[in-house]
Design a protein around this nucleic acid. Sequence first.
DNA 1: CCCGTGACTCTAC
DNA 2: CGTAGAGCCACGG
Length: 110
Amino acid sequence: MADLHARARIYAAIRAIPRGQVAGYGHVAARAGLPGRARMVCQALAASGDADLPWHRVVRSDGRIAFPKDSRGFREQCRRLKAEGVAIARGRVRIPPSAPSLDELLWSPP
DNA sequence: CCCGTGACTCTAC
DNA sequence: CGTAGAGCCACGG
């Protein structure tokens, strides 16, 4: 079993993402106190599976959907994001997660 | 202990 | 703005 402590922090970071907003894996990891563990976030999500997490709000650093274009997960994530008003074009979120000051504003600074 | 795999990231071209 | 390669982290065979 992996560190449930870290896992819990990752989940908390994901739940902290505001509705209609997205965050990158690395960003979530850093927010969870695990800098450079983006892949751990990925594993945590895959392991959680059916947990009550807004996993669809987690995208890659480029704003791209992490799933393959023809994957079911891709369509599901795309659908959920659109349902929240997030604009998507060619499998990519129009607004990159790590860009503007809006980010710092929403991500509750220390 | 080495190696392959993955819902990743960064840099170079 | 696109692809290609190396780097990283955790996990299982």
